[in-house]
Design a protein around this nucleic acid. Sequence first.
DNA 1: TGGTTCATTGACCGGATGGTTAGGGAATTA
DNA 2: TAATTCCCTAACCATCCGGTCAATGAACCA
Lengths: 222, 222
Amino acid sequence: MAAANKMNSAEQGAGAPELRAPESRDEILKAAIKLFANRGFHETSMAEVARAANVSKALIFWHFKTKEDLFMAVLNRLLEPYVIDFAEEAGALGEVAQIMQLVELYLMFVRDNASSIRFFVAQLMRGELASDALTGPVMQLYDGYRGLLVDLIGRAQAKDLCLKDFPAAAVARMLLSMLNGTLIEMLFAENANADVASAIAMIRQWLFGGRAGAAKDAPPEL
Amino acid sequence: MAAANKMNSAEQGAGAPELRAPESRDEILKAAIKLFANRGFHETSMAEVARAANVSKALIFWHFKTKEDLFMAVLNRLLEPYVIDFAEEAGALGEVAQIMQLVELYLMFVRDNASSIRFFVAQLMRGELASDALTGPVMQLYDGYRGLLVDLIGRAQAKDLCLKDFPAAAVARMLLSMLNGTLIEMLFAENANADVASAIAMIRQWLFGGRAGAAKDAPPEL
DNA sequence: TGGTTCATTGACCGGATGGTTAGGGAATTA
DNA sequence: TAATTCCCTAACCATCCGGTCAATGAACCA
């Protein structure tokens, strides 16, 4: 029977579990990601996706019932790297080191996923589509991150390791504003790498300024 | 001759200098602003604009040669309040007071123009159209603001009135990141007013923390 | 061998969209 | 009054878009 030899030529790699269609579906997804990401939903036609993926338009509709289906698939594919467990990432270090590690995590994540983040923010901005399918996961991630921050900052304040002039929630909100501000700076200007280290240094100084608190046990390694 | 009685019914108000057509053009512009702002360019059809402005579609094309022409007109109209001379706004106060006034100016401006700013950011994000017509003025404004900030911070540092652990340019960049972060927080969540005062307080503490510098001569009045 | 499923396609369809055109009515001008 | 200009419209047009369909070849199954 010459078993297990379905695919025609190229290797199939680790296929997603839910689909059978060999590789065209993936080709379509890749093309759609590129097009949707830098042209948006309404500005991208199915014919363009088809052309970019070297398939017929009808095949796209065979794989995905509708254009919005395709868009949702793209969205979910792009959302995959966003499943992060921040709590797990920050080991059992001291509060100060954990906070700084979260800061670095945020910045490095932004740097490494700049293009999809730009896409998501643009998408979030104008609620045009997928407002629920996007805001859901994104907000969950965001709130988790902020929760961790508030908790850690609160504990650091209790130990007098960290700026105490404002309630932990306010400090956390401001820290997030700094991070988000740096994010959009990185998103707009393409000089990503340069000022990340500087931003980290200034945040550390702001949060733990005078205190002789925990040493710099987590070198940035950017 | 019954002079000066052209318009049919409603008062015409202060007409823009460059156009003759009585009021329909303005009606169209107003409708287009609303539609473009919260539905985007490609998602807004000329028929919709026509319906919203209570005119025929053809009239729009009589006033504006093409859809993109209309969009540019909308853009310029929305850009009008953005012609601010920051240097003039901040009078001859001390450096500290001037910096804080710039900060408040930024935040209040964002609060008062939230909707058009959201539109601009969304537009800037995805370069789909008008990338030049927008980035030009916006960047000019932004750079002017940052320039002022760098200068003032530098002078404040020289007088030992302000945080000196980092070069003025870096401090200014971080301050802008904070402001931009607060901006996007205000843009996404609609709780605008609440945390502006808090943000201002934290920025003041960050910049002029220990120093017994200039008094709070400019009450926020938010 | 013949049937069934899978993967794929070119051709087609109704609808919406940006844009045009020919014309009408009111005011101004001559 | 006649011609001209300005403002405005209904009707039209070509094009493109999302989506459907009938057909086709290849692999698998009986």
